[in-house]
């Protein structure tokens, strides 16, 4: 009996790992391919059958890619936009989630429903109307245009509101008896208690902001205002695309995100598993 169970356990473990390895290979392969392509010569890149590793790593691809566009400038721009939108998102999300979860004001439910309803509007629709607004405000080709439309997110507000609602009301009442104002309660109790969720929101926003392509492309004209992802287009010329350079540039683009992810990994995993949602 116990022998059977042992064998069963081993088989289950093997199956589990097989599935995990299968999934991991599928996720990792594009990354490996990107890195290896970035180190190949153009001939090696199109050779049949393709090789997984370049014969001699062409580190010069990175130099060339870096020189092809003002990447330093793009990098700074991306950093500014990502930092500002993430700070903005955190402030608006925490404040509104607190209001929706703890405060009572007339029309609370209606306003919350309207927030949720905006989740159903496709992003493309928003781009058109937001673009018109930006034009009317004469914000084209400015940081404002890239930042302001993205400093609040109905989805994150919804997510954090659910987290805040799980905090028992008695904590709020206890804080009240302890002469703690609403704002102080939010900062000292609610935020630290839900720091995993807030970290998750921050990292999800950093990723999406870092990778944003369409919107920055639409609202900027000048070279000085472009962001990293826009820079990749540079390699697509009429004469064809230099894939190895795109790959090198892509590697440089994703590196900061991967580093941030590795540092905050613990919080993301906890936050996402607790919310039962996938990033």
């Amino acid at each position: 009996m116990s022998q059977n169970r042992k064998v069963g356990n081993i088989i289950a473990t093997i199956l589990k790992y097989a599935v995990l390895i299968f999934g991991a290979v599928f996720t990792i392969l594009p990354f490996v391919w990107m890195i290896s392509s970035s180190l190949k010569t153009p001939t090696e890149l199109v050779q049949i059958p393709p090789s997984l590793f370049p014969e001699t790593p062409q580190w010069s691809n990175y130099q060339e890619a870096w020189k092809a566009a003002p990447f330093a400038r793009y990098f700074v721009n991306t950093l500014i936009v990502t930092f500002c939108t993430t700070c903005g998102v955190l402030v608006t999300t925490v404040l509104s989630a607190f209001a929706f979860s703890r405060l009572n004001f007339p029309g609370k439910k209606t306003v919350f429903s309207l927030f949720l309803a905006t989740l159903m509007i496709p992003g493309e629709m928003l781009i058109i109307t937001n673009y018109e607004t930006i034009i009317n405000l004469k914000w084209i080709d400015s940081y404002k245009a890239m930042i302001i439309p993205w400093i609040s997110s109905a989805f994150y507000i919804y997510l954090l509101t659910r987290f805040f609602m799980q905090v028992p009301e008695s904590l709020y009442l206890a804080a009240k008896v302890d002469k703690c104002s609403d704002f102080k309660y939010m900062i000292k109790i609610m935020v630290p208690m839900n720091k995993q969720a807030i970290f998750s929101i921050a990292i999800l926003n950093i990723i999406s902001s870092w990778n944003a392509f369409l919107w920055p492309l639409l609202v900027t004209n000048s070279q000085e205002m472009r962001v990293l992802s826009n820079g990749l287009v540079r390699f697509q010329t009429e004469a064809g695309s230099s894939t190895e350079l795109i790959m090198a540039a892509s590697c440089m683009l994703v590196m900061p995100i991967i580093i941030i992810y590795l540092f905050l990994r613990k919080y993301i995993i906890e936050g996402v598993t607790r919310s039962g949602l996938k990033g």
Binding site: V177, I189, M193
Partner: peptide
């Protein structure tokens, strides 16, 4: 409530989970 000079203990204690015992007690 904060000006009534009362101490209130809740059924679920309502301790602040992220604070130490000392921080909980000094909070008021």
């Amino acid at each position: 409530p904060e000006d009534r000079e009362i101490g209130l203990v809740f059924q679920n204690y309502a301790l602040y989970p992220h604070m130490t015992v000392e921080d909980n007690i000094t909070f008021p």
